[in-house]
Design a protein around this nucleic acid. Structure first.
Lengths: 237, 237
DNA sequence: GTCCATTTGTACGTATGTATC
DNA sequence: TGATACATACGTACAAATGGA
Protein backbone atom coordinates (compact mmCIF):
# COMPACT_ATOMS: atom_id res chain seq x y z
CA UNK A 1 0.00 0.00 0.00
CA UNK A 2 1.45 3.33 -1.04
CA UNK A 3 1.50 6.60 0.83
CA UNK A 4 -1.84 8.38 0.82
CA UNK A 5 -1.76 11.76 -0.80
CA UNK A 6 -2.02 14.72 1.50
CA UNK A 7 -5.37 16.54 1.56
CA UNK A 8 -5.78 19.78 -0.33
CA UNK A 9 -5.86 22.02 2.73
CA UNK A 10 -2.62 20.52 3.94
CA UNK A 11 -0.89 21.02 0.61
CA UNK A 12 -1.89 24.68 0.64
CA UNK A 13 -0.77 24.96 4.26
CA UNK A 14 2.64 23.49 3.44
CA UNK A 15 2.98 25.80 0.46
CA UNK A 16 2.16 28.96 2.39
CA UNK A 17 4.21 27.90 5.40
CA UNK A 18 7.14 27.30 3.10
CA UNK A 19 6.79 30.77 1.60
CA UNK A 20 6.86 32.29 5.07
CA UNK A 21 9.78 30.12 6.17
CA UNK A 22 11.88 31.05 3.16
CA UNK A 23 10.99 34.71 3.75
CA UNK A 24 9.03 35.15 0.52
CA UNK A 25 6.49 36.62 2.92
CA UNK A 26 7.84 38.57 5.84
CA UNK A 27 6.59 40.30 8.93
CA UNK A 28 3.72 42.63 8.10
CA UNK A 29 3.05 41.32 4.61
CA UNK A 30 -0.45 40.36 3.58
CA UNK A 31 -1.11 36.92 2.17
CA UNK A 32 -3.35 36.76 -0.90
CA UNK A 33 -7.00 37.05 0.07
CA UNK A 34 -9.06 33.93 0.57
CA UNK A 35 -10.83 34.47 -2.72
CA UNK A 36 -7.55 34.88 -4.55
CA UNK A 37 -6.23 31.68 -3.03
CA UNK A 38 -9.46 29.93 -4.05
CA UNK A 39 -9.00 31.05 -7.62
CA UNK A 40 -5.30 30.33 -7.97
CA UNK A 41 -5.51 26.88 -6.37
CA UNK A 42 -8.96 25.84 -7.57
CA UNK A 43 -10.30 25.36 -4.09
CA UNK A 44 -13.35 26.58 -2.20
CA UNK A 45 -13.27 28.98 0.72
CA UNK A 46 -13.79 26.44 3.52
CA UNK A 47 -10.76 24.52 2.27
CA UNK A 48 -8.61 27.62 1.98
CA UNK A 49 -9.76 28.79 5.40
CA UNK A 50 -8.75 25.50 6.95
CA UNK A 51 -5.21 25.96 5.68
CA UNK A 52 -5.13 29.53 6.96
CA UNK A 53 -6.54 28.44 10.33
CA UNK A 54 -3.61 26.07 10.72
CA UNK A 55 -1.17 28.89 10.08
CA UNK A 56 -2.96 30.98 12.71
CA UNK A 57 -2.83 28.19 15.27
CA UNK A 58 0.90 27.81 14.81
CA UNK A 59 1.58 31.50 15.02
CA UNK A 60 2.66 32.16 11.42
CA UNK A 61 -0.09 34.66 10.68
CA UNK A 62 -2.93 36.56 12.27
CA UNK A 63 -6.08 37.50 10.43
CA UNK A 64 -8.03 40.68 10.54
CA UNK A 65 -11.54 41.06 9.31
CA UNK A 66 -11.75 43.57 6.53
CA UNK A 67 -8.03 43.64 6.08
CA UNK A 68 -6.50 40.26 5.38
CA UNK A 69 -4.09 37.61 6.61
CA UNK A 70 -1.09 39.31 8.14
CA UNK A 71 2.23 37.49 8.23
CA UNK A 72 4.00 37.39 11.59
CA UNK A 73 7.04 35.48 10.40
CA UNK A 74 8.65 32.45 11.97
CA UNK A 75 7.03 31.57 15.28
CA UNK A 76 9.04 30.53 18.25
CA UNK A 77 8.52 26.80 18.11
CA UNK A 78 7.58 25.17 21.35
CA UNK A 79 9.38 21.98 22.09
CA UNK A 80 12.02 22.95 19.60
CA UNK A 81 15.32 23.12 21.33
CA UNK A 82 17.66 25.38 19.50
CA UNK A 83 21.03 26.83 20.24
CA UNK A 84 22.30 30.31 20.75
CA UNK A 85 25.87 31.37 20.76
CA UNK A 86 27.39 33.97 23.00
CA UNK A 87 28.75 35.97 20.10
CA UNK A 88 26.64 35.20 17.03
CA UNK A 89 23.43 33.60 15.93
CA UNK A 90 23.43 30.14 14.42
CA UNK A 91 22.91 30.15 10.68
CA UNK A 92 21.32 27.12 9.11
CA UNK A 93 24.38 26.62 6.95
CA UNK A 94 26.77 26.25 9.84
CA UNK A 95 24.93 23.30 11.31
CA UNK A 96 25.83 19.86 10.03
CA UNK A 97 24.61 16.44 11.06
CA UNK A 98 26.54 13.22 11.09
CA UNK A 99 24.67 9.95 11.35
CA UNK A 100 26.41 7.78 13.93
CA UNK A 101 23.85 4.98 14.00
CA UNK A 102 21.56 4.76 10.98
CA UNK A 103 17.85 4.33 11.57
CA UNK A 104 17.21 0.65 12.17
CA UNK A 105 14.56 -1.45 13.82
CA UNK A 106 15.35 -3.03 17.15
CA UNK A 107 13.61 -3.98 20.37
CA UNK A 108 13.18 -1.40 23.11
CA UNK A 109 15.82 -1.49 25.78
CA UNK A 110 14.36 1.49 27.60
CA UNK A 111 12.67 4.80 26.85
CA UNK A 112 14.86 7.12 28.90
CA UNK A 113 12.75 6.57 31.98
CA UNK A 114 9.38 7.09 30.35
CA UNK A 115 6.59 4.53 30.28
CA UNK A 116 5.97 2.52 27.12
CA UNK A 117 2.61 1.22 26.05
CA UNK A 118 2.27 -2.52 25.60
CA UNK A 119 1.69 -2.03 21.88
CA UNK A 120 4.77 0.13 21.42
CA UNK A 121 6.85 -2.39 23.32
CA UNK A 122 5.67 -5.33 21.23
CA UNK A 123 6.32 -3.55 17.93
CA UNK A 124 9.90 -2.60 18.67
CA UNK A 125 11.45 0.74 17.85
CA UNK A 126 13.32 2.63 15.22
CA UNK A 127 16.59 3.70 16.75
CA UNK A 128 19.14 6.19 15.48
CA UNK A 129 21.95 8.29 16.80
CA UNK A 130 23.15 11.54 15.34
CA UNK A 131 25.95 13.95 16.07
CA UNK A 132 25.28 17.61 15.36
CA UNK A 133 28.15 19.94 14.68
CA UNK A 134 28.41 23.69 14.51
CA UNK A 135 31.35 24.98 12.53
CA UNK A 136 32.57 21.39 12.48
CA UNK A 137 32.69 21.27 16.25
CA UNK A 138 30.40 18.70 17.90
CA UNK A 139 27.73 20.21 20.13
CA UNK A 140 24.76 17.79 20.19
CA UNK A 141 24.63 14.04 20.51
CA UNK A 142 21.13 12.88 19.83
CA UNK A 143 19.61 9.44 20.43
CA UNK A 144 16.11 9.00 19.03
CA UNK A 145 13.73 6.08 19.50
CA UNK A 146 10.46 5.95 17.63
CA UNK A 147 7.79 3.25 17.94
CA UNK A 148 7.94 1.03 14.85
CA UNK A 149 4.42 1.87 13.88
CA UNK A 150 3.37 2.12 10.26
CA UNK A 151 5.91 4.63 8.96
CA UNK A 152 6.61 3.29 5.47
CA UNK A 153 10.14 3.84 4.18
CA UNK A 154 11.11 5.60 7.37
CA UNK A 155 14.36 3.75 7.97
CA UNK A 156 15.48 4.41 4.42
CA UNK A 157 15.04 8.13 4.57
CA UNK A 158 18.00 10.34 5.05
CA UNK A 159 18.21 12.69 7.97
CA UNK A 160 21.29 14.72 7.30
CA UNK A 161 20.56 18.37 7.85
CA UNK A 162 16.84 17.84 8.02
CA UNK A 163 14.67 18.18 11.03
CA UNK A 164 12.97 15.04 12.20
CA UNK A 165 9.94 17.18 13.06
CA UNK A 166 9.73 18.39 9.44
CA UNK A 167 9.97 14.88 8.05
CA UNK A 168 7.22 13.60 10.31
CA UNK A 169 5.01 16.54 9.39
CA UNK A 170 5.55 16.54 5.63
CA UNK A 171 5.73 12.84 4.88
CA UNK A 172 3.53 11.34 7.57
CA UNK A 173 1.22 14.22 8.56
CA UNK A 174 2.30 13.85 12.17
CA UNK A 175 2.81 16.98 14.22
CA UNK A 176 4.53 17.27 17.55
CA UNK A 177 1.94 18.72 19.89
CA UNK A 178 3.76 18.75 23.19
CA UNK A 179 5.81 16.69 25.49
CA UNK A 180 7.83 16.43 28.60
CA UNK A 181 11.49 16.69 29.34
CA UNK A 182 13.88 15.92 32.15
CA UNK A 183 17.09 17.88 32.30
CA UNK A 184 20.27 17.09 34.18
CA UNK A 185 23.80 18.38 34.37
CA UNK A 186 26.25 15.50 34.27
CA UNK A 187 29.91 14.94 33.63
CA UNK A 188 31.04 13.55 30.31
CA UNK A 189 31.21 9.76 30.12
CA UNK A 190 33.40 7.74 27.77
CA UNK A 191 31.11 7.92 24.78
CA UNK A 192 30.66 11.66 25.07
CA UNK A 193 34.38 12.18 25.61
CA UNK A 194 34.94 10.29 22.38
CA UNK A 195 32.33 12.12 20.28
CA UNK A 196 32.77 15.59 21.73
CA UNK A 197 36.51 15.54 22.30
CA UNK A 198 36.21 17.04 25.77
CA UNK A 199 37.87 16.14 29.03
CA UNK A 200 36.49 13.37 31.18
CA UNK A 201 34.81 15.58 33.77
CA UNK A 202 33.54 18.28 31.45
CA UNK A 203 30.00 19.40 32.41
CA UNK A 204 27.40 18.20 29.92
CA UNK A 205 23.69 18.81 29.63
CA UNK A 206 21.47 15.79 29.22
CA UNK A 207 17.83 16.08 28.17
CA UNK A 208 15.47 13.10 28.19
CA UNK A 209 12.38 13.88 26.19
CA UNK A 210 9.03 12.38 25.43
CA UNK A 211 7.35 14.00 22.43
CA UNK A 212 3.60 13.68 21.98
CA UNK A 213 2.09 13.97 18.53
CA UNK A 214 -1.18 14.64 16.79
CA UNK A 215 -1.44 10.93 16.02
CA UNK A 216 -3.33 9.28 18.86
CA UNK A 217 -1.14 7.15 21.07
CA UNK A 218 1.97 7.97 19.11
CA UNK A 219 4.83 9.40 21.14
CA UNK A 220 8.52 9.15 20.58
CA UNK A 221 11.56 9.61 22.73
CA UNK A 222 14.93 11.21 22.53
CA UNK A 223 17.96 11.77 24.65
CA UNK A 224 20.16 14.72 23.90
CA UNK A 225 23.65 15.35 25.19
CA UNK A 226 24.77 18.92 24.74
CA UNK A 227 28.08 20.65 25.23
CA UNK A 228 26.98 24.07 26.43
CA UNK A 229 30.46 25.49 26.75
CA UNK A 230 30.05 27.82 23.78
CA UNK A 231 26.33 27.57 23.15
CA UNK A 232 23.23 27.55 25.32
CA UNK A 233 20.23 25.37 24.76
CA UNK A 234 17.25 27.64 24.30
CA UNK A 235 13.57 26.94 24.23
CA UNK A 236 10.33 28.89 24.14
CA UNK A 237 7.17 27.99 25.95
CA UNK B 1 -23.53 49.44 23.38
CA UNK B 2 -23.66 46.07 25.10
CA UNK B 3 -21.35 43.11 24.77
CA UNK B 4 -21.81 41.22 21.54
CA UNK B 5 -23.01 37.71 22.04
CA UNK B 6 -20.46 34.98 21.56
CA UNK B 7 -20.75 32.89 18.40
CA UNK B 8 -22.33 29.47 18.59
CA UNK B 9 -19.11 27.53 18.17
CA UNK B 10 -17.52 29.43 21.03
CA UNK B 11 -20.45 28.83 23.35
CA UNK B 12 -20.23 25.12 22.67
CA UNK B 13 -16.45 25.24 23.16
CA UNK B 14 -16.80 26.98 26.54
CA UNK B 15 -19.46 24.50 27.59
CA UNK B 16 -17.40 21.43 26.71
CA UNK B 17 -14.21 22.92 28.11
CA UNK B 18 -16.01 23.61 31.37
CA UNK B 19 -17.21 20.02 31.55
CA UNK B 20 -13.65 18.78 31.12
CA UNK B 21 -12.25 21.25 33.64
CA UNK B 22 -14.77 20.31 36.31
CA UNK B 23 -14.04 16.64 35.61
CA UNK B 24 -17.49 15.78 34.29
CA UNK B 25 -15.44 14.28 31.49
CA UNK B 26 -12.16 12.70 32.44
CA UNK B 27 -9.17 11.11 30.78
CA UNK B 28 -10.25 8.48 28.29
CA UNK B 29 -13.91 9.44 28.18
CA UNK B 30 -15.60 9.97 24.85
CA UNK B 31 -17.43 13.21 24.18
CA UNK B 32 -20.83 12.88 22.51
CA UNK B 33 -20.46 12.33 18.77
CA UNK B 34 -20.62 15.24 16.39
CA UNK B 35 -24.10 14.28 15.30
CA UNK B 36 -25.29 14.04 18.89
CA UNK B 37 -23.89 17.47 19.64
CA UNK B 38 -25.61 18.79 16.52
CA UNK B 39 -28.92 17.41 17.70
CA UNK B 40 -28.70 18.50 21.33
CA UNK B 41 -27.54 22.02 20.56
CA UNK B 42 -29.38 22.62 17.31
CA UNK B 43 -26.24 23.23 15.30
CA UNK B 44 -24.79 21.85 12.09
CA UNK B 45 -21.70 19.72 11.84
CA UNK B 46 -19.28 22.42 10.63
CA UNK B 47 -20.17 24.52 13.66
CA UNK B 48 -19.79 21.64 16.08
CA UNK B 49 -16.53 20.64 14.45
CA UNK B 50 -15.15 24.14 14.88
CA UNK B 51 -15.75 23.95 18.62
CA UNK B 52 -14.12 20.52 18.78
CA UNK B 53 -11.16 21.75 16.70
CA UNK B 54 -10.52 24.42 19.32
CA UNK B 55 -10.46 21.80 22.08
CA UNK B 56 -7.98 19.76 20.04
CA UNK B 57 -5.72 22.76 19.49
CA UNK B 58 -5.57 23.45 23.20
CA UNK B 59 -4.88 19.88 24.13
CA UNK B 60 -8.13 19.04 25.89
CA UNK B 61 -9.12 16.24 23.50
CA UNK B 62 -7.88 14.24 20.58
CA UNK B 63 -10.14 12.84 17.90
CA UNK B 64 -10.07 9.49 16.24
CA UNK B 65 -11.83 8.64 13.06
CA UNK B 66 -14.34 5.88 13.55
CA UNK B 67 -14.10 6.16 17.31
CA UNK B 68 -14.86 9.60 18.62
CA UNK B 69 -13.51 12.58 20.53
CA UNK B 70 -11.34 11.31 23.35
CA UNK B 71 -10.85 13.45 26.44
CA UNK B 72 -7.27 13.97 27.57
CA UNK B 73 -8.11 16.05 30.63
CA UNK B 74 -6.50 19.27 31.73
CA UNK B 75 -3.54 20.27 29.61
CA UNK B 76 -0.25 20.38 31.44
CA UNK B 77 0.91 23.82 32.41
CA UNK B 78 3.69 25.16 30.30
CA UNK B 79 6.69 26.97 31.61
CA UNK B 80 6.46 25.43 35.04
CA UNK B 81 9.72 23.83 36.00
CA UNK B 82 9.35 21.16 38.60
CA UNK B 83 11.51 18.44 39.99
CA UNK B 84 11.33 14.69 39.90
CA UNK B 85 13.33 12.30 41.98
CA UNK B 86 14.74 9.00 40.89
CA UNK B 87 13.05 7.06 43.64
CA UNK B 88 10.02 9.05 44.78
CA UNK B 89 7.83 11.97 43.82
CA UNK B 90 8.26 15.32 45.48
CA UNK B 91 5.57 16.11 48.02
CA UNK B 92 4.75 19.74 48.61
CA UNK B 93 5.59 19.32 52.27
CA UNK B 94 9.18 18.26 51.71
CA UNK B 95 10.05 21.43 49.86
CA UNK B 96 11.22 24.41 51.91
CA UNK B 97 12.40 27.82 50.86
CA UNK B 98 15.01 29.97 52.53
CA UNK B 99 15.22 33.65 51.62
CA UNK B 100 18.86 34.53 51.05
CA UNK B 101 18.29 38.07 49.80
CA UNK B 102 14.96 39.64 50.73
CA UNK B 103 12.98 41.40 48.00
CA UNK B 104 14.36 44.91 47.65
CA UNK B 105 14.46 47.60 45.02
CA UNK B 106 17.70 48.21 43.18
CA UNK B 107 18.92 49.27 39.75
CA UNK B 108 19.33 46.69 37.02
CA UNK B 109 22.80 45.31 36.67
CA UNK B 110 21.80 42.91 33.91
CA UNK B 111 18.87 40.70 32.95
CA UNK B 112 20.69 37.41 32.45
CA UNK B 113 21.44 38.26 28.85
CA UNK B 114 17.95 39.37 27.90
CA UNK B 115 17.06 42.79 26.55
CA UNK B 116 15.46 45.34 28.84
CA UNK B 117 13.02 48.00 27.72
CA UNK B 118 13.98 51.61 28.40
CA UNK B 119 11.08 51.97 30.79
CA UNK B 120 12.01 48.88 32.79
CA UNK B 121 15.59 50.05 33.01
CA UNK B 122 14.66 53.50 34.30
CA UNK B 123 12.33 52.13 36.98
CA UNK B 124 14.82 49.74 38.49
CA UNK B 125 14.01 46.24 39.65
CA UNK B 126 12.88 44.18 42.59
CA UNK B 127 15.60 41.68 43.32
CA UNK B 128 15.54 38.61 45.53
CA UNK B 129 17.42 35.39 45.98
CA UNK B 130 16.04 32.19 47.39
CA UNK B 131 17.42 28.78 48.23
CA UNK B 132 15.08 25.83 47.83
CA UNK B 133 15.68 22.68 49.80
CA UNK B 134 14.25 19.21 49.53
CA UNK B 135 14.47 17.17 52.70
CA UNK B 136 16.68 19.95 54.04
CA UNK B 137 19.15 19.42 51.23
CA UNK B 138 19.66 22.43 48.93
CA UNK B 139 18.65 21.79 45.33
CA UNK B 140 17.67 25.16 43.78
CA UNK B 141 19.25 28.56 43.98
CA UNK B 142 16.93 31.09 42.48
CA UNK B 143 17.64 34.73 41.57
CA UNK B 144 14.62 36.73 40.50
CA UNK B 145 14.46 40.23 39.07
CA UNK B 146 11.14 41.93 38.46
CA UNK B 147 10.59 45.38 36.92
CA UNK B 148 9.65 47.81 39.69
CA UNK B 149 6.35 48.61 38.11
CA UNK B 150 3.27 49.29 40.17
CA UNK B 151 3.24 46.21 42.39
CA UNK B 152 2.08 47.66 45.73
CA UNK B 153 3.39 45.94 48.84
CA UNK B 154 5.36 43.49 46.73
CA UNK B 155 8.63 43.79 48.59
CA UNK B 156 6.92 43.27 51.91
CA UNK B 157 5.23 40.05 50.98
CA UNK B 158 6.58 36.79 52.15
CA UNK B 159 7.62 34.17 49.67
CA UNK B 160 8.41 31.17 51.80
CA UNK B 161 6.83 28.07 50.35
CA UNK B 162 4.67 30.01 47.96
CA UNK B 163 5.00 30.11 44.24
CA UNK B 164 5.84 33.47 42.76
CA UNK B 165 3.49 32.61 39.88
CA UNK B 166 0.62 32.13 42.33
CA UNK B 167 1.30 35.42 44.08
CA UNK B 168 1.37 37.33 40.81
CA UNK B 169 -1.85 35.70 39.67
CA UNK B 170 -3.82 36.01 42.91
CA UNK B 171 -2.67 39.39 44.19
CA UNK B 172 -1.90 41.25 40.99
CA UNK B 173 -3.99 39.43 38.36
CA UNK B 174 -0.89 38.80 36.32
CA UNK B 175 -0.53 35.47 34.57
CA UNK B 176 2.60 34.01 33.07
CA UNK B 177 1.76 33.39 29.44
CA UNK B 178 5.03 32.18 28.00
CA UNK B 179 8.69 32.84 27.89
CA UNK B 180 12.08 31.79 26.87
CA UNK B 181 14.90 30.00 28.61
CA UNK B 182 18.56 29.34 28.09
CA UNK B 183 20.04 26.27 29.71
CA UNK B 184 23.66 25.44 30.37
CA UNK B 185 25.65 22.85 32.24
CA UNK B 186 28.38 24.50 34.28
CA UNK B 187 30.66 23.64 37.14
CA UNK B 188 29.89 24.94 40.61
CA UNK B 189 31.42 28.34 41.40
CA UNK B 190 32.25 29.65 44.87
CA UNK B 191 28.77 30.88 45.70
CA UNK B 192 27.15 27.62 44.64
CA UNK B 193 29.75 25.58 46.48
CA UNK B 194 28.88 27.55 49.59
CA UNK B 195 25.10 27.26 49.29
CA UNK B 196 24.90 23.72 47.95
CA UNK B 197 27.79 22.19 49.84
CA UNK B 198 29.14 20.41 46.79
CA UNK B 199 32.65 20.05 45.48
CA UNK B 200 34.18 22.79 43.37
CA UNK B 201 33.76 21.07 40.00
CA UNK B 202 30.38 19.50 40.58
CA UNK B 203 28.18 19.76 37.46
CA UNK B 204 25.34 22.26 37.92
CA UNK B 205 22.42 23.23 35.73
CA UNK B 206 21.87 26.90 35.11
CA UNK B 207 18.66 28.22 33.58
CA UNK B 208 18.26 31.85 32.52
CA UNK B 209 14.62 32.67 31.99
CA UNK B 210 12.51 35.47 30.65
CA UNK B 211 8.88 35.14 31.64
CA UNK B 212 6.22 36.98 29.65
CA UNK B 213 2.91 37.82 31.27
CA UNK B 214 -0.64 38.75 30.43
CA UNK B 215 0.19 42.35 31.37
CA UNK B 216 1.36 44.06 28.20
CA UNK B 217 5.04 44.87 28.27
CA UNK B 218 5.57 43.22 31.63
CA UNK B 219 8.20 40.50 31.71
CA UNK B 220 10.41 39.34 34.51
CA UNK B 221 13.62 37.38 34.72
CA UNK B 222 15.10 34.62 36.76
CA UNK B 223 18.25 32.61 36.97
CA UNK B 224 18.08 29.18 38.52
CA UNK B 225 20.99 27.04 39.63
CA UNK B 226 20.05 23.44 40.13
CA UNK B 227 21.89 20.48 41.58
CA UNK B 228 20.55 17.64 39.46
CA UNK B 229 22.51 14.92 41.18
CA UNK B 230 19.45 13.41 42.86
CA UNK B 231 16.67 15.23 41.05
CA UNK B 232 15.95 16.14 37.44
CA UNK B 233 14.43 19.38 36.31
CA UNK B 234 11.25 18.54 34.43
CA UNK B 235 9.01 20.65 32.27
CA UNK B 236 6.05 20.20 29.95
CA UNK B 237 5.51 21.98 26.70
C1' DG C 1 -19.44 61.61 7.59
C1' DT C 2 -21.21 58.46 4.07
C1' DC C 3 -20.96 55.07 0.76
C1' DC C 4 -18.95 51.13 -1.26
C1' DA C 5 -15.84 47.49 -2.55
C1' DT C 6 -12.99 44.21 -0.34
C1' DT C 7 -11.97 40.88 3.14
C1' DT C 8 -12.64 37.96 6.82
C1' DG C 9 -16.27 35.78 10.24
C1' DT C 10 -20.17 32.86 11.04
C1' DA C 11 -23.37 29.46 9.74
C1' DC C 12 -26.02 26.92 6.97
C1' DG C 13 -26.45 22.57 3.68
C1' DT C 14 -24.76 18.32 1.20
C1' DA C 15 -21.97 14.52 -0.45
C1' DT C 16 -18.47 11.19 -0.17
C1' DG C 17 -14.37 8.90 1.84
C1' DT C 18 -12.30 6.16 5.50
C1' DA C 19 -11.34 4.24 10.07
C1' DT C 20 -13.28 1.72 13.98
C1' DC C 21 -15.91 -1.59 16.20
C1' DT D 1 -20.61 -6.88 6.88
C1' DG D 2 -22.97 -3.05 8.57
C1' DA D 3 -23.47 0.81 11.52
C1' DT D 4 -21.23 4.60 13.42
C1' DA D 5 -18.05 8.39 13.64
C1' DC D 6 -14.80 11.42 12.06
C1' DA D 7 -12.29 13.57 7.62
C1' DT D 8 -12.44 15.99 3.46
C1' DA D 9 -14.48 18.98 0.23
C1' DC D 10 -17.83 20.99 -2.33
C1' DG D 11 -21.42 25.08 -2.41
C1' DT D 12 -24.07 29.23 -0.55
C1' DA D 13 -25.55 33.23 2.13
C1' DC D 14 -25.22 36.92 5.05
C1' DA D 15 -22.77 39.67 8.81
C1' DA D 16 -19.13 42.65 10.29
C1' DA D 17 -14.80 45.16 9.94
C1' DT D 18 -11.61 47.82 7.10
C1' DG D 19 -10.08 51.32 4.15
C1' DG D 20 -10.44 54.32 0.43
C1' DA D 21 -13.38 57.30 -2.64
Amino acid sequence: MGAKEAPQYRKLYELLRGLIEDLSYQYGDLLPSENELCATHQLTRPTVRKALDMLVNEGFIIRQQGKGSIVLGLPKGIGILSLTGTTSAIGQDLLTTKIIVKPHIMSWEHAFGYELSERDRSLGCIHMERLRLINEKPVFYDITMIPNLNLPRFTSRTFENRSLFDILRKHYQIEVKGGEQKIQAITADDRIVKHFGVKKNHPILRVDRKLDTSKAGFSFFSQIYCNTENYSLIGSF
